[in-house]
Design a protein around this nucleic acid. Structure first.
Length: 506
RNA sequence: GGCCCGUUGGUCAAGGGGUUAAGACGCAUCCCUUUCACGGAUGAAUCACGAGUUCGAUUCUCGUACGGGCUACCA
C-alpha cells in the first residue's frame, strides 16, 4: 500500500444537477490533490436505484470537464483501483458487512418498512419527535440480537429480506480531527444503528465510503458539512475493519447558503441566478435548471468565484487562475462557517476574467451564442476584433450579443426619440455633406474624428451636437465603444449606408 | 425535541488581547468620457447579546440568542 501519495476522492450520486456546493467540493478536492502532486479520484454513488437519473453521470462528468476539473481516475478513465461505480462493486461490500456481523459489531435486522414505521409512530413523543433505531429500541425489534439463533437461521434460509445494521456501542466517546474544525467528538449512545447493507444487497453510503476509501487508498477526504453527524459511524467502521491509523484525514466543508438559508435549485428560479454548473433538465419533471455555463460564465471565473467562497490566501488578491489556486490553496485557510452566495460578486468575477483573458480563448463560445441568435459570423478575425473592442462593457458572454450585434447587421430600429427633439435642417445638411466628404477621408479613427469635428465647427455646429446622432446612425442606440472606432470597424461603405438609411427615415 | 456545526458592514472577508477594525462586491456622490462601459477619487455601513478573566476584550472563557445541518433500507 502506497501511504505516501495523496489521493482524494469525490463521490457524487447521479440524482440530478451538480450544484454550487458540489462543484466547490470537487474544486477543493482537486486543488488539494494537485497541490500535493496527488490523484483526484471520482467515484460514482449509484446504489440507490430509486433516485438514479439516466444521463446524470455523464452530466457530472461534462460539468467537471467544462470547469477544468477532470479527475485522474473515474468510471470514464479507470485507474488501478476500479471499478469506480458502486453498483459494479456490489460484491465487494458484502464480505465486510458479514465480517462485522461475525465479530458482533453489526447485526442482521428483519424489520419490514411497515414495522419500522410503526416503531417510529409508537415511540414518538413530544420530547422525541423522530425516534431512531438505536440501542434503546433494538432489543424490541426483530433482529439477530433478539431472535433465537435457530430462528435467524430459518429466516435467512427462507430468503427473508434483511438489512445489516451497525451495533453502536454504549456511551463511548468517538472523535476525530477534522482538518478544518479541529477535534470533533460524539457520544456513541446518541447515534443510531445505521443500515450498512440494504435488503437488495447494496451498501449504504456509510459502508461504501469506508470500504472504497480503504481499497482505493484514499488519503484525504473532503465532503460537505452535512456528513459530520454520521462521521462517528465511519470512524467506528474504520476501527472495526481496517484500523484507525489507515483512516483518511477528513475535512468537512461549510455549506453554501442561498438568500434564505441553504442554497436550493428553487432559489435559482426565484432569484434569477444559476445554481448548477451547466443546464440540467430533470427527465422526470421535464424541468430545466439553468447552469452557469449557459448563463454566460467563463469556467475560469466560475472556479475563481467558487474557490473564494470559503477560502482566501490571506492577501488582498481575489483573481486567481486555476494554476495559482493549485499553488496557493491551503486547507487551514478554509472557513468553518457557511458562506452566502452573492450573484453580483459572481458576475464581477466574470467581468474581470472577460477583461483578463485573450478574446481568442472565449471567441468560439461567444460565436455559438451569436449563431444561436441567428447572427452568422463569417469572418473570425473581424469577430475577434469586435470582441476586443467591447469586452470591457460585457459582464456575461451573453452580453456580447446586445453589445455587438450592430457590428454584424444594420440596426433595425434607430433611437429617433433621442435625436428628433434637437434635429433640424442644418444637421440634415451637415450629415449629407459628411457622407460626401467621407469618400475622400482616410479611414482611420483619429483622423476621422478630427475631420468630423472640424467639419462640424465649420458648419456652425458644436461637435457634441452631432456626435450622438452619428452614433445612433451606426449603432441604433446610445451605447457602444467610441463612435469613430465603430465607423472604422464597419468600413466606409457600411458607415455611409447606415447614415443614409437613418437620414431617409428620420 | 436530541445531537453536531457555525456567527466581523447588505454580501465575501482580513485581523486572534491595545488597530483610524484591511480589502473586494454592491450602493451613493464626484472626476474622466458630449453614449454606455472601463478607469480614478470620495462616502455611508460591521465585530449577535450578556456575564466573566484582564489595566484593557472584536480577539480568551461561559452562558444566551440566532442561523444551518443531521436525526431514511438518500447521499
Amino acid at each position: 500500500m502506497n501511504n505516501n501519495k495523496v489521493r482524494v476522492r469525490f463521490a457524487p450520486s447521479p440524482t440530478g444537477g451538480l450544484h454550487l456546493g458540489g462543484v466547490r467540493t470537487v474544486l477543493y478536492n482537486y486543488l488539494f490533490a494537485k497541490r500535493n502532486q496527488g490523484d483526484f479520484v471520482l467515484r460514482i454513488e449509484d446504489t440507490d436505484q430509486t433516485r438514479f437519473v439516466e444521463g446524470a453521470e455523464q452530466y457530472i462528468y461534462d460539468c467537471l470537464q467544462w470547469a477544468g476539473l477532470e479527475p485522474d481516475e473515474s468510471p470514464l478513465k479507470p485507474g488501478a483501483f476500479g471499478p469506480y461505480r458502486q453498483s459494479e462493486r456490489k460484491s465487494i461490500y458484502r464480505q465486510y458487512a458479514d465480517q462485522l456481523v461475525t465479530n458482533g459489531q453489526a447485526y442482521i435486522a428483519f424489520d419490514t418498512p411497515e414495522e419500522l414505521e410503526k416503531m417510529r409512530a409508537d415511540f414518538k413523543t413530544e420530547q422525541n419527535p423522530s425516534p431512531q433505531y438505536d440501542r434503546t429500541v433494538r432489543d424490541k425489534m426483530r433482529n439477530s440480537l433478539t431472535l433465537p439463533a435457530a430462528e435467524v437461521k430459518e429466516l435467512l434460509e427462507k430468503g427473508t429480506p434483511y438489512v445489516i445494521r451497525i451495533k453502536m456501542p454504549d456511551n463511548e466517546r468517538i472523535g476525530f480531527t477534522d482538518m478544518i474544525r479541529g477535534e470533533v467528538e460524539f457520544n456513541s449512545s446518541l447515534v443510531d444503528d445505521k443500515v450498512l447493507l440494504k435488503a437488495d444487497g447494496m451498501p449504504t453510503y456509510h459502508l461504501a465510503v469506508v470500504v472504497d476509501d480503504y481499497l482505493m487508498e484514499i488519503s484525504h477526504a473532503f465532503r460537505g458539512e452535512e456528513w459530520l453527524p454520521s462521521s462517528p459511524v465511519h470512524v467506528l467502521l474504520w476501527q472495526y475493519l481496517f484500523g484507525l491509523d489507515k483512516m483518511p484525514q477528513w475535512a468537512h466543508l461549510p455549506l453554501i447558503l442561498g438568500p434564505n438559508g441553504k442554497l436550493s435549485k428553487r432559489d435559482g428560479a426565484k432569484y434569477g441566478f444559476p445554481v448548477f454548473a451547466m443546464n440540467w433538465t430533470d427527465p422526470a419533471a421535464n424541468e430545466l435548471t439553468e447552469g452557469f455555463r449557459e448563463k454566460g460564465f467563463l469556467p475560469e471565473a466560475f472556479i475563481n468565484m467558487l474557490a473564494l467562497l470559503g477560502w482566501n490566501d490571506g492577501t488582498e488578491q481575489e483573481l486567481f487562475s486555476k494554476e495559482e489556486l493549485v499553488e496557493k490553496f491551503s486547507i487551514d485557510r478554509v472557513h468553518s462557517g457557511g458562506a452566502k452566495f452573492d450573484y453580483e460578486k459572481a458576475k464581477w468575477f466574470n467581468h474581470e476574467w472577460l477583461k483578463k483573458l485573450p478574446v481568442s480563448s472565449y471567441a468560439a463560445a461567444v460565436k455559438d451564442i451569436f449563431t444561436g441568435k441567428d447572427i452568422e459570423i463569417s469572418d473570425d478575425i473581424y469577430f475577434e476584433k469586435v470582441l476586443e473592442l467591447i469586452k470591457e462593457r460585457c459582464t456575461l458572454l451573453t452580453d456580447f450579443v446586445d453589445q455587438a450585434a450592430f457590428f454584424f447587421k444594420a440596426p433595425e430600429n434607430f433611437d429617433f426619440d433621442s435625436v428628433r427633439p434637437k434635429w433640424n435642417d442644418a444637421k440634415l445638411q451637415f450629415f449629407r455633406s459628411v457622407i460626401e466628404k467621407f469618400a475622400a477621408t482616410e479611414w482611420e479613427p483619429v483622423l476621422l474624428e478630427n475631420s468630423f469635428k472640424e467639419w462640424a465647427t465649420a458648419a456652425g455646429l458644436k461637435p457634441g451636437e452631432v456626435m450622438m446622432p452619428f452614433r445612433i446612425m451606426l449603432v441604433g442606440g446610445k451605447f457602444g465603444p467610441h463612435v469613430f472606432d465603430i465607423a472604422v470597424m464597419l468600413g466606409r461603405e457600411e458607415t455611409v449606408k447606415r447614415m443614409e438609411l437613418f437620414l431617409n427615415r428620420i
